[in-house]
Design a protein around this nucleic acid. Structure first.
Lengths: 337, 337
DNA sequence: CCTCTTCCCGAAAGCGCTTTCGGTAATTTG
DNA sequence: CAAATTACCGAAAGCGCTTTCGGGAAGAGG
């Protein structure tokens, strides 16, 4: 591989000139640039990123923080889709993603510390837990940062229009004739969960529908199992809902399972609508009607906001709300009188 | 944050001593070490990773290469599970993962070049395409490397016992009374696909069953759609199989869909067994019986082999074959005469 | 009391690269 | 043809850290 010193020796120029030739400075003649470039090609020269970063104070690396909370890590299809599109968008600009471990050779440190240690140019947080002290710390720091799927006043954020999504769902069910509409919700400590609850309540109010006791049930952290348990609570009610809006597709899967186990039919007995539009719901029975979050768009927006912030020297706090839409499949049916 | 120079100034020692104190050298007294450590804590000192790497020639970073081939990227649940467990295992040793983009500031370079540029300590390749020139180049290089889900003579590899897995599947179907067993296969250019074909043929032979014409159908690259199409070809046969072993769960989903659309029932009319055991197949109807690949184990083994190789200075070429097991669910039934 | 260890510490070189600044040679201008 | 630009190149400092090596001070041994 070799260094610029080797290149200098080989071509007879100084390392200064070599470096300039490599970096397209204008004060080096075409002839010498050509010589140097050729020599570089011949010896497979590659600049050392660490040396570059050290002297330019730019690392071309973006740190990503995933929530470890629910042990989902990079397995969750929704967050996955986002990070994948985020990666594509930043990669085009020449950035690499680095997933930081939290221990630096035994001594464990915070994410912020680790990212400072690595001297990343920016950070993306993909994690729904606003209570996480680590996330708070990141948001307080002065490193360019963008937060996904969570709101915050003091840094750039991008998330889906959850209120509107919930409204779409409720209105859709209403148009099918349903009035007894329940909501199986995500935990309120998670922004997405809270916003969907808000949208649900708003929509019900707008339609002059009252939310019956027990119709709003907290199902925690979006897992299949929690969804199932929540639905079982609804099924125990004397006055059962005829339709239920579920705050996440995974939960919705559990919901359908619970309904089936009760000997009831989806959608004939109970209509179910989910949230997210993860791939797998096209293959369950019945195919799930849901509110689609555009992970591509979210990832791209996040990349855009972060890049913006890395070039601007000051802290920006733009908020980008990505539209959602309803995807009609087979899990909702008109209410039969 | 500050540098060791600041620390030196603050404590009155030389940067040499500061560095030594920070790195637990034994030739610095407890008293001065304590002073330096405290000063470091007070000013939130963090070592600069680039400077460290530059002088130690160790970056504590592992490059990961994903297949971009089928546009799955990090979305595929199987590879995802692997990378997640790999990450956990390497993180414990203090390594960070870096997902390299392939363009360095406009000029696009190969993965190998990029990894050299970044001076990673090792590489993990999670990608099934052995024909990919980029992968070949990586394997030929002298950077420590481990390859997942693919075989190779000249670097460390880890993959599932695909031959045995196929055998398990076929034997299971045979024990249920099936004799007309078809195989919807992955492409032979992919090692996993080829090995499962081999296992299928071997098992059939061991059972003295003949593979009828048309019973071995190539379904390409493991997608739902391709699985569906392959099954449609089987359904057109005069002498239909009573059971089919499908080389991947996603394909199996398509297979089941095709069968249902033909007005037939799984498993009563046709038994289906998949491969992988991805999460979602527990939620389709019927729940898919499958051969489980242990992604946790695979990821850990990969980490282990890579770490081994990074400490050993020479090239190791260990091969680790991870056992698989059959997970019985509801998509296979005894053959009724 | 002198010599030999042992214990601490620091000077300096080096890792590979960027960038400022100044200087010489070539070119243009009037 | 003299003066003023312009074009091209290199010395040197700096980025933040590690590590070798040598030397002084203190303690141990005779």
């Amino acid at each position: 591989m070799g260094t610029i010193y080797d290149l200098a020796k080989k071509t007879g120029f100084s390392i200064t000139t070599v470096s300039k030739a490599l970096n397209n400075y204008k004060d080096v003649s075409d002839k010498t640039r050509a010589k140097i470039l050729q020599a570089a090609a011949e010896m497979d020269y590659l600049p050392n990123a660490h040396a570059q970063s050290l002297s330019t104070k730019k690392s071309w690396a973006i740190g990503v923080m995933f929530s470890e909370a629910n042990e989902v890590g990079m397995k969750h299809p929704f967050f996955n889709g986002i990070i994948e599109s985020f990666r594509h968008a930043t990669e085009e600009q020449g950035y690499d993603l680095i997933f930081a471990s939290r221990n630096l050779r035994n001594r464990d440190m915070s994410y912020l510390e680790h990212f400072k240690h690595r001297a990343v140019d920016g950070i993306v947080v993909i994690c729904s837990d606003r209570m996480d002290e680590q996330v708070q710390e990141l948001m307080r720091s002065d490193i360019p940062i963008v937060v996904v799927d969570m709101d915050s006043a003091n840094c750039s954020v991008v998330y889906s229009d959850n209120v509107e999504g919930a409204r779409l769902a409720v209105n859709y069910l209403y148009e099918l004739g349903h009035q007894k509409i329940a909501h199986i919700a995500g935990d309120e400590t998670i922004d997405a969960g809270a916003a969907r609850i808000k949208g649900y309540e708003l929509a019900m109010q707008e339609l002059n529908l009252s939310i019956q006791p027990g119709y709003l049930v907290n199902a925690g952290f979006f897992s299949v199992e929690e969804g199932k348990q929540a639905m079982e609570r609804l099924l125990e009610l004397d006055d059962r809902p005829t339709a239920v809006f579920v705050a996440g597709d995974q939960m919705a899967i559990g919901v359908i399972e619970a309904i089936h186990e009760h000997g009831l039919h989806v959608p004939n007995d109970i209509s179910v609508i989910g949230y997210d539009d993860i791939d797998m719901i096209q293959y369950i029975t019945p195919k799930l009607t849901t509110i689609r979050q555009d992970t591509d768009e979210i990832g791209e927006a996040a990349a855009e906001l972060l890049l913006e912030q890395m070039t601007a020297k000051e802290r920006l706090t733009e908020r980008r709300v990505i539209p959602v839409r309803l995807v009609e499949r087979a899990s909702c049916a008109p209410l039969e009188q």
